[in-house]
Every structure is written in C-alpha cells, then in structure tokens.
Amino acid sequence: MELIKKYFPNLLDQQIYRLSSLKNLYAYWNAYVNLVSRKTFHDFYQQHVLFCLGIAKVFSFDPGSCVLDLGTGGGFPGIPLSIVFPHTKFILVDSIRKKIKIIEKIIYHLHLKNVYPICFRAEKLENKFDFVVTRAVKKINIIHNWTKDKFKYKSNSRIKNGTFYLKGGNIYDELKEFPYAIEYPLNSYFEEPFFITKKIVWISNI
C-alpha cells in the first residue's frame, strides 16, 4: 500500500482506508473464487492496484461520467478507479456470475456507492457510456467492435468518448488498424521494473 501512497500522495483518508482494505478482502475471497492470479497475489498492490490506477495518471474522469469496466473479472480496473474517482459512476460487467457475486460483497464491505456490478455479456449491453476501461481481456479490435455503438454521442470531457486499454508487451500488430490510438507508457509514471512493458492505450470511439 505504501507504493500507492508514493504515487498518489493526495488521497483522502477514506480512499486510503478503502485501498488498504483491498488486499485482505481479496485474500479472503480468492480462497473461494480465483479473482486474482495466485501467482501474482504476493505483488497485489503493484501488479493489480497500481497498474489499474495507471489510468488515473493519464486521465481524470469528470464527476457524473459513466464508465464501463468491460470484462471486470475480479473487479479490475473498476474497483480501484471507483475509489479514486468517487463521483464517477462505474458499471462492472462480466459474464461469470460467481465473480460478480463476490464483487458485490467487496463493494458492500467498502461502502462504495458509485459501483454497479452486472452479470452480462458486454457486447449485448444496450446502455450508453462516456468511457470504457478494460484490462487485456481480448485483443483491441475485438473490444472495439463490441463497444463501438455503446458510447454517448456527446462528450462532456476534454477528450472524446472512448476506451482506455491496460496492456503489456508488444501490441504493434493490435494497433495496426488504429493509427489514431495514443499510447501512454507507464514507465513514464512509475519507476518499478514491472512497468517497463506496461502501457495505457487510448482509442476514441466517436
């Protein structure tokens, strides 16, 4: 948790408390459902929480915005982002019901009022959103096709509505059909070696 405070020194006490509670909550529920890879759990705050909060380093969601966390899995990046942006609405979608049920319990325990988990296939959602966030659940072109008609037509932010992808490794081939994509290397924000190959990719959908 010291790693989070290092890079986000202006967090409020309640935000620190909620973020500090995450590891114990996930340790407990991971014994029942594999929400977080057990191979990486020892590095929970770096590989899961801070990685997801990389989005908060490149963009600040406005109060009142609605964000879809597509393929949320164990609640990433939606839950950490919802703590940092308490006035933004986050819809966490996953097709695996048992994961959504546990995410509901984690949200309840943390008293998060801006997070709404849904068990549904993301491509079948009829809702409209300002932004989508997703952590490498599929290749970019697949997610882009799933979400291209799910954005509000009018953007109320300083950038157009679109998707933030948390990615790692070489994604040159994935980006060939998206010449307008913007990459934000996370080693520009975080000094730990883990982030050398990690990045945020921003693609406008309107």
Rank of each mutant, 00 (worst) to 15 (best):
I103P: 02
Q15F: 07
W146S: 05
P9I: 09
I142E: 11
R135M: 05
L112V: 12
N161V: 00
L53K: 10
I91V: 05
D173L: 14
P80G: 15
A56Q: 09
V67C: 01
I100D: 00
N170I: 12
I107D: 06
K39S: 15
L11K: 06
F164M: 07
T88P: 00
S204I: 03
F120L: 07
I203V: 11
K105D: 11
E183S: 13
K57N: 02
I55H: 02
I83S: 14
F61R: 02
S37E: 06
C66D: 08
N156H: 02
K148G: 08
L186Y: 03
E177L: 12
I4S: 06
L166D: 07
L166F: 07
L175S: 06
I203Y: 04
Y7L: 12
I159L: 08
L92G: 00
K5Y: 01
R97P: 00
D173W: 09
E183G: 06
L125Y: 01
Y189L: 06
I79G: 08
I171Q: 09
Y45C: 14
K5G: 00
E191W: 05
S188K: 13
N170G: 08
C52S: 15
I206R: 09
N30K: 05
F61C: 04
F41R: 10
L166P: 05
S20P: 05
D69S: 02
L70E: 08
H48F: 14
F151P: 00
K101H: 13
C66V: 13
F51R: 10
M1Q: 04
L125A: 03
F90W: 00
E123F: 13
F151T: 01
Y28E: 14
M1F: 04
G71D: 09
G169K: 10
Q14A: 15
S188W: 07
G162K: 02
F129L: 01
I96R: 07
I182C: 13
V137H: 05
V67F: 01
K5W: 00
K148A: 10
N24V: 13
I171E: 06
P179E: 14
V93C: 04
A31Q: 13
I203H: 03
D69T: 03
H48W: 13
F164L: 05
H42A: 15
K99D: 01
P9A: 08
T163V: 15
H87Q: 15
K176N: 09
M1N: 05
A31V: 08
Q15K: 11
G54N: 06
T197S: 14
N114C: 08
F76P: 04
G73P: 04
K98Y: 04
